[in-house]
Each structure stands twice: as C-alpha cells, then as structure tokens.
Amino acid sequence: MTTATATNLKQVPLLRRYLNLTSAILVVAAAAMIVVSIQNPSLLVNTLATGGMWALMAGGLALVFGVMNIPSFVHGDLFMVGTLVALFVFTPIQSMIQDAPNDFVLKWLGPFAGMILAFILGAVIGVLMELLLFRQLRRRSREQWVMNTFLLTAGLSIMFENVAMMAFGNLPQGISRYWDVPPIDVLGVPVAMDRLVTFIVAMGTLAVFALFLQRSRTGRAMRAVSMDETGAQMAGIGLTRIYQLTLALSCGLAALAGAVLIWLTPFTPTVGASPLLIAWYVVILAGLGNVQGAVVGAFLVAMVQQLTGYYLALNWVDVLPTGIIILVLLFKPSGLFGSEVKGVWEQ
C-alpha cells in the first residue's frame, strides 16, 4: 500500500501535496508557539532547549530502528548514564572553580568535559551492546527480530536502572550551577546560560549528525543499510561495522543529551524513563525510522509538553500526548512524516 502512494506522489498537484494534515499541524503549532511566546517568552526558550535534546534522543532512536530494526527500550538508560557521567566529571571541576573563581577555561569549558566523556562512554556501551547482545541474537535467529530485540532491550533497561539504584541510591543528585554566569539578553529576553548552551549544543550536534548522515561515505552506507540491507551488502558495505557505528552513535547521543540536560533532570536511576517515553512518542509521531522527521517531531513534542505543563498541570504531561498520538495514528498510521520507503522490518 505504501508503494502505491509513492507512485501517486508525482501526480498529486503541488497545492494538494502541501495542503495535508502534516503541514496543517505544523502551521497550527508554529502559530500557537508564536502567540504563546509573545505572552510568555520563557516557554519558547524552554521549548527550544528541551526540544533540541529530545531531538538528539529521538534521532538516535530512529536511527537504530531504521538501520538495525531494534526498537530500543534502553535508550532512556543511556540518558541516565549521561547524567551520571556529568555528575562525576563536573563535581570535581566545580570545586576547582570554587577555588579559582576567575579561571576562564574552567568556568566556560568545564561542563563540556562531562558532555564529551558522556558521549564517549555512551558510544562504548553501544558497541558493547552490539557485540554482547544483538550479534549473539542475530547469529542465533533473525526470526521475530523486532519483538525479540525489544524484549532484549527491555531486560537490559531493568538491569541498568536497578544496578544504578543499587550503586548510587534512589535520591536525586544534580548540579545546581552548571554555568555560573548571569543570564544573557537575547532580543530583550533574559535567557539563562544553561538553556542557551543546551540549545547551541543540540543544534551543533544535529548539524554534525545531519552532515555525517547526508555527506560522508559512512553515513551514506548507514542510510543504504536502513533502506535495503541485502542491497547494501551486495554493494560491498560491511554490516558489522555499520551496526557497531549505528549503536555507538545513537547511544552516544542519548548519553550526551543526559549530560547536557542535567541542570533540568538530576540523576535518579529512573531519570531516563521520561526522555525514553518522549523519544518514543516523537518517533511514533514522526514515523518509525525516520530521522529527519524525528528531529522536527521532537520540537513539536517539546512544545506540547511545555504548553500542557503551563496551562494544565505538570502531571498531565503524560496523558495529553497519548491522546494526541491516538489521533495521529487514527488518521496517519505511518506517522506525520511517514516514509514512503518500505523498511526492512516491514518485509
């Protein structure tokens, strides 16, 4: 059925092609955001900051699903690992800053040490996951792969969470002053440094990520594998390396998001649950395995979250998105940006 729409795509008049549900939702969302941000600019700032991080989470999730057909349930726990790394790297740096309050390098670049290490550790965990789990499962059987890997990651997620609980306890541990500098004026709106840096890191990472996927040889190989595994193999692409790289990249991005966002979400063993939910929500909304769609969807979801949190109450944040996603699945089952390309998992 998806191939039929693909062939029809060219015959649809230009106007109708852009007058669809997806663009309608995007326009409404943009309008809502403009209206709201005039009333309350901090909502816009928060949307952009958190949206960027959800984009990193959801982009990684979509990538793993697209390339390896793994619906990862362990993604949120890499976020948790990221917060842990930031905590352990930045706490000594913070005491060094207190000793030398005027040290420019420490003050401005200190937090980045934790972020970079978080990305590296996340990537290492990703490679280990591929070597120890997914490769073993692939060797045994590829039957019912999607469900099996889903359960595998679910089991892994319980282990991550509860080992973290046993090792670091249940209490939230955060960093109070990630950037000890006053807010900066952006177009007359005071923006706290942590939000600004979050947004900049998100945009920078996404740009590098997109360039890598679109332009580099390896990125092209990854996209080839996600479209047609056998075909990619025939063209001489080594699957093992691509798989390792995919998991490393996606897990690294999740850990990075955790390290960057620690000012908002302090470490607890289950801190990853909500980012995982959001990432999944974004991925279903945008269409499974669609990386670009996931990035746009992430900002949409961040906006819905901020608006619900502001106008209703914070505890409704889980309820409303589910309602929205039910509507989306009713009218556009393949997601807002549902891809016309049939993934490996659908065959």
Binding site: V146, F150, L288, A313, V317, D318, V319, W345
Partner: peptide, 23 residues
C-alpha cells in the same frame, strides 16, 4: 499496523491510565 506499534501504543495507553489514576 505492525506489532511494534501495538507494543509501544499499549505502553502509552498504560502511562496515560497511570496518569489518569494519579490525577
């Protein structure tokens, strides 16, 4: 849709029910 949609969707429904029960 495919099985994974059902798995994720039931998870969403569960969290929504949990949220309703809390709220």
């Amino acid at each position: 849709l495919r099985g994974i949609y059902a798995a994720v969707m039931t998870w969403f429904v569960a969290l929504a029910l949990l949220g309703l029960a809390r709220n």
